[in-house]
Amino acid sequence: MRNFKFNSLSAIIRSKKARRGMTIVICVFASLVLLITTAGAAGTAAKAVNVIMDGIKYPLTKGHPYSENGTTMIPFRMISGKLGTQANWNAANKTLTLQQKENKIVLTVGSSFAKVNGQPVALGAMVVQKDGMTMIPLTVVSDLLSAEVEVDEFSQSVHIHTPGKDLGELDYFGRKIRTTNLPKNYKDYPYILEDIPNEMYEMRHTINYYAGDAKTGAQMFITKVTSEDMAKIIKRMKIGYDLRLNVDYKTIDPASYAKEVFNLENQSVSIRKNEIKEYAEWVKKNKIQIEGAIDPEPSVLYYPGTGDYRIRSKFRFKINNFIEYKDILLDEYFIAHFRRSGELKKGVWYEGYADISVSTNYYNGTPGETKNLDSLSSLFENATLHEMK
């Protein structure tokens, strides 16, 4: 297994040794389906996607990139003022005009065609407005604006790169490292990323200080885990929470839902599968509808000395419907949060950070192959939670 290491941009994009299974893909969107779990038993079609623009990942927040029906959509603001373009928005007719050198590109909300120097060009999906943001198909970036677009199956991310731009030092997952304005506890981590605020780094850890083998993330990357391990663990975490946070009473099938969710958890307690099925049956009875996602950060992990790893994750969810305010989320700490902080509101987006637990029922084995979501992993245990206005 390889230890954690830094790479130059050229190594990340071109070296087969730098990333396994990575291919530069221009407009081959079938591959993007690999980045998203369908979670068919749970319901919703659109799923959050990691998109990294010149080493900066767009945060999991309002207007985040998503995939729907095999097409990745990104917020225009992500590329606004970049790639050598000038933009003009006409609110009256909902058109976005981009000028890049001699090319004039006109995009219209509700249309799946662009006009390039007056000629229609198919985009493969419609330009839409979502959460107050103009969302454009990734084809606009790769086909019309001539950016380098890479689908990285290893880290389950899409990279957009301005041709010829030097990004400086990147981490193994293609993100920019910063060396200034560091968090107070920066020594706890193997590196500090430019696109993560200090707020996330400086949250307290749930460490059992009586456990002599508790370790920081910096220590774990040296002795315990590799980048390949973290990529595999995080992929399973995201799929697991796609299932937990996207439920719809109209489409959920309790038996298949329980099987899918349980397969992505530590399976040391077989009765857990029955508990998940009972929750799914309650979803149908209580007419629960939820949508959301998590974005685990591979470098922000630690070992609390209690057998599991904790991986700090950005999360976002919205409860769209229920009848009775009871057991709305598949989360063991939901009731405790309700008693402590009051009811969560319908139709409101909540965001925050949580230390999500991953564990295993295997005595030996590499973390990347054996660590799964713990059945007690929670968005409400060691977490921050904010109502988004």
Rank of each mutant, 00 (worst) to 15 (best):
L144R: 03
Q267K: 09
G84C: 07
D195S: 10
M73E: 00
V33E: 03
G21S: 05
A92Q: 10
K285C: 00
Y350T: 00
S155A: 14
K187I: 02
I222L: 14
G305F: 00
K215T: 00
L34E: 13
Y303H: 01
Y279V: 05
A48T: 07
I233S: 04
E68R: 13
K82L: 04
M237K: 03
L32N: 11
L32M: 04
A147K: 02
K318Y: 11
N117C: 11
D171L: 12
D166I: 05
Q129K: 14
I79Q: 11
N382W: 07
I160L: 13
L301P: 12
G40E: 10
D54H: 05
E194H: 12
L182D: 03
E260C: 05
V106E: 15
I290G: 02
I79R: 09
G164W: 14
M133Q: 08
A211V: 02
L123G: 08
A214R: 08
G40D: 01
I323G: 04
V116N: 01
S15E: 15
K250W: 09
F173Q: 10
W282N: 11
L301T: 08
E387V: 06
V140Y: 10
P183E: 06
K165N: 05
S377C: 01
S8T: 13
K318E: 11
G70K: 11
N50F: 12
T223G: 01
V33M: 14
D213M: 01
L373A: 00
T134H: 07
A39K: 01
K314E: 14
K101A: 15
M1D: 03
Y66T: 00
S299T: 05
G368N: 08
N3W: 12
N274M: 10
N372E: 02
I192A: 01
L35S: 05
D327M: 11
R175C: 03
Y241E: 13
E265R: 11
K115G: 03
G124N: 06
K284P: 06
K47R: 14
D295T: 01
D143F: 02
G347I: 07
K94D: 02
A87F: 14
A231Q: 08
V33F: 11
V140E: 10
Q86L: 01
R77E: 06
T180Q: 12
S10C: 13
G217N: 14
L145E: 13
Q99G: 01
D331W: 06
A293R: 09
E281D: 06
A147D: 07
Y189M: 04
K130N: 14
G118H: 00
M203I: 06
T97I: 09
T72N: 04
Y302D: 01
T85D: 02
L60D: 02
H386V: 06
I12S: 14
P120I: 09
N364T: 03
Y257V: 04
F262I: 05
Q119T: 09
D213S: 04
L385S: 05
I335G: 13
E381W: 15
A336C: 00
I271R: 13
V33H: 06
P183M: 05
T216E: 05
S146C: 04
D143H: 08
H159P: 11
N246R: 02
V106G: 00
H64Y: 13
L245Y: 08
I276D: 05
S359K: 13
V158Y: 11
T216C: 07
D253I: 14
F154L: 10
M133V: 10
S359M: 09
I311V: 12
Y201M: 09
I222R: 15
V28C: 13
